[in-house]
Design a protein around this nucleic acid. Sequence first.
DNA 1: ATGGTGGACCTTCCA
Length: 258
Amino acid sequence: MKIASWNVNSVKARLPRVVEWLDEFKPDVVLLQELKCVDENFPRMEIEDLGYNVETHGQKTYNGVAILSKYPIEDVMVGLPGDKSDEQARYLEATVNTVRVAALYLPNGNPVPGEKFDYKLGWMDRLIARAGKLLQTEEVFVLGGDYNVCPKDEDCYAPERFARDALCMPESRDKFYTLLNLGLTDALRAFHPSGHNYTYWDYQGGAWQKDNGLRIDHLLLSPQAADKLRACDVDRKPRGREKASDHTPIWCELDVAE
DNA sequence: ATGGTGGACCTTCCA
């Protein structure tokens, strides 16, 4: 069972790239971020025509997450618990083929310091709390998405340039490791313990051509999911195409009965 | 050197 995550940076602008990639990669489940549209404007028909069920949690102009699945999507939970005043569409959780999955778009947090960085850290506290709840169920689960956290200096092409950036700040990394240390597995690092495995390259300055990237998209697995992990990698191909997103998909394969 | 990339939206915000 192949589960992928991809920040598409506008599903409307990216639809040809998304359709093309679904057709060639044939993932079973896809966690999308940065839809940048309300639910009514999601290109549901085009995705359903490829054999996917669709659940969306959209928002006008900003954010927005979705779950696409070849299996029925059950027990949907919209939004990250812990702050009823939070109106940003950044979290969607559901069960597909016995696996609990979440599509998450963690706040960027720049500039530092400021309200946005505080919101990021607060959102991470809520994610840690949610992961703790999920771990109590001892289920197979995957928390996938754009975490906007670059875990280590080796995950950044120029760590000195990002030392004060919200993606690399010690507070961001500390909370990311608090999350991991609950007992989750960073699936990509389980298969590629070191080296550059970037998932994002800025549009500016020829970053893609120079491989000036960062690893900020992650698949975090419960212990029960990690036991079933068979493969994990970044698919760089979509980033090199015309009208590309600035992120590229990360995927894993779990040995789950179908 | 006050640019630069891209998306949404309509003038500025966000990444």
